[in-house]
Write a protein that binds this DNA or RNA. Structure first.
Length: 424
RNA sequence: GGAGGAGUUCCCGAGUGGCCAAAGGGGGCAGACUGUAAAUCUGUUGUCGACGACUUCGGUGGUUCGAAUCCACCCUCCUCCA
């Protein structure tokens, strides 16, 4: 197991070796509920949850304790919406590509196979055979992405299922109950991810409603956690900041959200159409109002240079479908930019995707072979491409953590922020 | 040897006198994608000194103001009969 700059991720190697030693018959929770990772004592717990190890400028290096293990931050969460990373990547593969924490989706898993079924089968960890931390998104993004299929009210959102058209209702309570059934380590509050641009008055009213929803989420979250049948009694909850591209709304909403005690706080509703600089400006505005002692999660972001720029702005958690989706479409990331492996230029190239990459794909396969697999429509093409891209994103974060540990993050940022935005 | 059918741009295949550089599909080439309704979507695919010009629909010649489309001959392929 080789992780670029993995000296600070020794625990990963440990987890991976444990994973390899597992046999099919041992398909059980690796960390039983009876052996919590941290103390359940409430006071003690709130202190140890997020440890800020160091800072460089606004960039933060930390460790976040989840029920299924620690997460070294800043971190990129690998997205497996329906309990699987698209592109035929299993939880076992995630270990090999350096994934620390996986993200799945409330709305999608509720629709299929159903959260109650997953609870019946022992929770999402057991279901997908992933023993590391899981964050579940609340369905708030689907309020945005399925805009043609839903109706919002104070109570919640009525969706027309994108699968069969049947009407389903999801409000704060429903979302929290589903996430409790899934048993994720981190549950996200149910919010409305507002499109950009949207009228000021609409965004304001939406933010006020999202605040009311957060109160309801908190209440239901506590209730679910205390149930004797709770899948994960240590599940945490993150609140979400909204406010479109209006700094004053963003700041006001962040201040109000921070008043509601959560285990972490997220910035949502960005990278949904606005200019990149606008996104950075919003983060600059909001960051100052985010509790220092809690992890910050920038939802749905982003490109490699976005990640570097946002770590520089004090963000700890990220997630994005981009590396996986782009991989499936042939766009691969390298330490000198990106390339489209389907392009003719790679037709007879015997070299790896990226000579600087230690991933299993770069160690074994040529660009020419990858291009051939894409041209032939082989599913191995997607699998290898996704493995590479996710490895790259995880390695990028690992490199940033290393740079932070060594006090040379700004140096790293100067070298790579622009470089990674360009073509290989 | 006789009878019938067919040859269209990289491939398959529409088109049977002007609105045809020629539908559609495939393939090729390129682009997009940011809490995943995405193995999706978009553009492009004769040449050039490019809002125009030139060359193209098996070949040659002809009819016509005008031909991928009509006529003659030739070439190639397919089917059936000897």
């Amino acid at each position: 197991m080789q992780l670029k700059g993995s000296s600070n991720d020794a625990y990963l190697a440990f987890v991976v070796s444990g994973m390899y030693n597992q046999t099919v018959n041992e398909r059980i929770e690796i960390r039983p509920r009876s052996m919590p990772y941290f103390s359940t004592n409430k006071q003690k717990r709130s202190k140890v949850l997020f440890e800020l190890i160091s800072k460089e400028g606004r960039a933060r290096r930390g460790v976040f304790q989840c029920a299924h293990g620690p997460v070294q931050t800043p971190v990129f969460m690998n997205v497996g919406t329906q309990g699987a990373i698209k592109g035929a990547v299993s939880a076992q593969d995630l270990k090999e590509i350096g994934c620390q924490i996986e993200l799945s989706n409330t709305y999608h898993l509720h629709l299929r196979p159903g959260d109650k079924l997953i609870k019946e089968l022992g929770g999402l960890h057991q279901f997908m055979h992933w023993d590391g931390p899981i964050l579940t998104d609340s369905g708030g993004f689907q309020v945005f992405s399925l805009s043609g299929l839903r109706k919002i009210s104070e109570e919640g959102v009525t969706f027309s299922s994108h699968i069969d058209g049947r009407r389903i209702f999801m409000g704060p309570e429903e979302s929290m109950e589903i996430q409790a059934n899934l048993g994720s380590d981190i549950a996200m509050a149910f919010d409305e991810c507002v499109e950009n641009p949207a009228p000021y008055e609409y965004v304001k009213a939406s933010c006020q409603r999202t605040l009311r929803w957060l109160e309801r989420c908190k209440a239901e979250h506590s209730r679910q956690r205390s149930l004797s049948a709770a899948v994960n009694p240590q599940q945490m909850i993150f609140g979400i900041n909204q406010g479109g591209i209006f700094p004053d709304l963003r700041i006001w909403h962040m201040q109000e959200t921070a008043k509601i005690e959560c285990d972490g706080y997220a910035i949502g509703g960005l990278a949904v159409g606005e200019e990149t600089q606008v996104m950075y400006d919003i983060i600059d505005a909001v960051e100052a109002y985010m509790p220092v002692e809690k992890p910050r999660y920038l939802m749905g972001v982003g490109t490699p240079s976005n990640l570097i720029e946002c770590v520089a702005r004090g963000i700890d958690f990220f997630d994005c479908v981009l590396p996986a989706r782009n991989a499936r479409h042939g766009k691969l990331y390298t330490w000198s930019g990106f390339l489209n492996i389907k392009n003719e230029i790679h037709k007879r190239d015997p070299g790896p995707i990226d000579p600087q990459c230690d991933c299993p794909v770069c160690r074994q396969f040529s660009r020419a072979y990858l291009r051939h697999l894409f041209a032939s429509g082989e599913m191995l093409a997607m699998r290898l491409a996704v493995l590479h891209n996710l490895y790259f994103f995880n390695a990028l974060m690992s490199q940033m953590r290393k740079a932070l540990d060594e006090g040379r993050f700004e140096e790293f940022r100067a070298e790579y922020s622009q470089k990674l935005a360009g073509r290989a």
